[in-house]
Design a protein around this nucleic acid. Sequence first.
DNA 1: GCCATGCTTCGGCCCGGACCGAAGCATGGC
DNA 2: GCCATGCTTCGGTCCGGGCCGAAGCATGGC
Lengths: 230, 230
Amino acid sequence: MSSNAAMAETAALVGDPARACMLNALMDGRALTAGELAGAAGITAQTASGHLARLAAAGLLAMERQGRHRYHRLASPAVARMLEAIMMVAGAAPPPARPRRTGPADAAMRRARTCYDHLAGQLGVAIADAMAARGQVELATDGGAVTPAGEDFLAGLGITSQAVGSRRAFCRPCLDWSERRHHLAGGLGAALCARCFELGWVKRVPQSRAVLVTRAGEAGLRRAFGIELD
Amino acid sequence: MSSNAAMAETAALVGDPARACMLNALMDGRALTAGELAGAAGITAQTASGHLARLAAAGLLAMERQGRHRYHRLASPAVARMLEAIMMVAGAAPPPARPRRTGPADAAMRRARTCYDHLAGQLGVAIADAMAARGQVELATDGGAVTPAGEDFLAGLGITSQAVGSRRAFCRPCLDWSERRHHLAGGLGAALCARCFELGWVKRVPQSRAVLVTRAGEAGLRRAFGIELD
DNA sequence: GCCATGCTTCGGCCCGGACCGAAGCATGGC
DNA sequence: GCCATGCTTCGGTCCGGGCCGAAGCATGGC
């Protein structure tokens, strides 16, 4: 059973704290240089170099040289999904343990962040809740669908069905790491996230997966979704 | 960022070949004794005991004592999904490598097997294809939905919508490990799988995730789905 | 009570691999 | 050409943890 060994090898790569840190830093979908990743993991450049080479060899990372720099990013959405899945199990892990402060310590991260290509945190959950409450999407633990009313609503936001995906069922729910509730992922989640950036409703916090809701964003989100973050 | 450490810890648990072997053996959803798991991993009982204790402490396994035996099973579907996700990355891993025989060496496994709670392999893919071709389900990479025609069809098979789930979108596609194509998972996949066992169309191969299609099953599958396994 | 079975705990061995210092290549700026 | 920057390779140290043998508890059969 060689597939067992392959699985163990892949998991072992994620199973080192320094590598996990680097992978996590790439979970926002951007590409970072080797130096930045070394800093994020708190290790020296030469140690990071070894790790990155192994991750790339295993197909977890894609590497791209640009001048003196080498940019690394997650090789595919499948890798991001794997990391999500691991994080979910890790988060729910201690079953008979003390409740233990859930989620990231960083308040901004808890409030709003990107999760590979879509929005998560309080913002992501609020959007999902609002769209579900208005009958714009139907959510279930195993999948979801956009309703006709939802398509109209998205069109009004400037999101075409082409941007979302060709089929009706493109709205994968993704259990939120800090909120422990579902938010919108999949094609719909990615399109909504991209549109929020385009509209200037949210902007990235440097060196972080966290995003800030701008003043225009607060107004826009209230108008479009009827949501009001604390 | 303590969540990083938690993720690494969880991944490291899967990252040991012996533990990966045991987790894999539990991927069919059944509960096995410590001795059986030790045998599956090719290690002694005392070594397995240590591994199992750690996996249980981390919330990956649930343990249940029954007489002298201790039965272990995956703690939750989330764990199974995590293992699936890791396997998927591991399978697709070597990107610039030789094509390398895909999937399990075992021919029976490739033909039909369970994947936690649903059917996979050629059989699983064939069912998904047949239902999609007949307009009974709509599949996308991020989710899926059963059509009204599909509900009628399922009712004819003796599968009520209660058995499948309360919402319309309960049919999560799951990328097949050996076939590299999608099959039906989620509530729908679980209900179909259970019904196939009830009808005696398939039966488990002892000590394996593989399942055999019975003579009655060949006829039933042909009649119900119009599929013909080689 | 006695023994067999199933599993766990303890102790000690040993190997893999994570880490860093130093040196070696590249690329870009001047 | 020269040096600075970014990254990699090499060599050596050190620690975590996987492994088994032996012994220690439970449970069940007799």
